[in-house]
């Protein structure tokens, strides 16, 4: 299957929007899972997109943008991996490690380029201030949108327009003489989330909360083994006897998150009780304080908002 012009343009436009959304609204449309689903839809195979997006999402879980450092660009990696996987018939599991990760790493340098290019506009703003050129200040401050979006748009466009032949050759070899590499890349794809989790653990206060790491791991390890076994059993029974039609679902992650949420609420209440027992807090209870309380509850609702849904 060849990419159509429309597909190439849509994927390019989406990858340009990606970086804009990430910098501004942060609606989650600029996360790898969404990148997978949207490029999957553009290519006409949403499921492949979701699978690739999910794997890359987990790989970069801990890689936030701390202090304006460039991070591995898993979004563009997902867009290209999805497009090429569907377009050339490369297995989704292979595309994650063979295309997604290298592209994501490569595009880090384009991110750096954009951040450099914007220095030019910063100096334009300096001049505009001297001249009281208000429109100029505004224009030159948002013109940075060009380096930002082009830093994703150009490489994605070029890769899609020129890369098909290369990727097709790759697929032929991977399905032929290099089968061992194909299997290896799939194993690598399955292992990669470990990196995302380890980075997160470095960032989170893991020593302080080590008990909860163990709880989360053990509860899930036991339950997921149980759920998987029951599923296998159900499938086996269904195959053996047509009258057995019950299907068993896999372990819902939301339920596990709820258990964690309960622990978090307990911890929050404990800290707040400690805070309120301190003498300073009890003195003035003006209306300002009430407002504050609301805001905090808001924030709390969002961080652990997944529990209520």
């Amino acid at each position: 299957m060849e990419f159509s012009i429309v597909q190439i343009l849509l994927l390019t436009a989406y990858s340009m929007y990606n970086i804009y959304d990430e910098l501004q609204m942060n609606s989650s449309l600029s996360q790898p899972v969404w990148a997978g689903m949207i490029s999957g839809l553009i290519m006409g195979d949403m499921k492949t997109g979701l699978v690739i997006g999910a794997a890359l999402q987990l790989t970069v879980l801990g890689v936030g943008t701390f202090g304006g450092a460039s991070k591995i660009d898993a979004n563009s990696g997902t867009v290209l991996a999805t497009a090429f996987s569907i377009g050339t018939g490369m297995k989704a599991a292979t595309a994650i490690a063979a295309i997604g990760v290298p592209v994501a790493a490569l595009l880090t340098s384009f991110d750096i380029l954009a951040r450099f290019a914007n220095t030019y506009f910063q100096h334009k703003v300096d001049k505009d201030i001297e001249n009281f050129n208000y429109k100029g200040i505004e224009r030159h401050s948002i013109m940075g949108v060009l380096p930002w979006t082009l830093s994703r748009g150009i490489p994605v466009f070029l890769a899609l327009a020129l890369g098909q032949g290369v990727v097709k050759t790759m697929v032929t070899y991977l399905n032929g003489d290099l089968q061992w590499l194909n299997t290896g890349l799939q194993t690598a794809g399955a292992t990669l989330p470990a990196v995302g989790f380890a980075i997160l653990l470095h960032y989170l206060p893991v020593k302080k909360h080590i008990a909860y790491l163990i709880l989360g791991f053990t509860i899930t390890a036991l339950l997921s083994t149980l759920f998987t076994s029951v599923q296998t059993l159900g499938t086996g029974l269904g195959a053996a006897n047509k009258a057995f039609t019950t299907t068993f679902n896999s372990l819902p992650m939301l339920a596990i998150a709820l258990i964690g949420g309960a622990f978090a609420i307990l911890e929050y209440k404990r800290s707040m009780a400690k805070l309120n027992s301190a003498p300073a807090a009890s003195s003035n209870n003006s209306s300002d304080d009430e407002d504050e309380e609301d805001e905090i509850e808001d924030a709390n609702g969002e961080v652990s908002g997944d529990e209520e849904e």
Binding site: L58, L61, P193, A194, F197, L200, L201, L204, P205, V206, K208, H209, I210, Y212, L213, I214, L215, G216, F217, T218, I219, T220, A221, S224, L251, M253, I256, A257, I259, G260, G261, F263, A264, I265, E267, Y268, S271, N300, V303, S304
Partner: peptide
Amino acid sequence: AATLLGVFIVGALIAS
């Protein structure tokens, strides 16, 4: 509290 939840979830993710 939020980091506690984060650590718990990472544990669950490792297992699943």
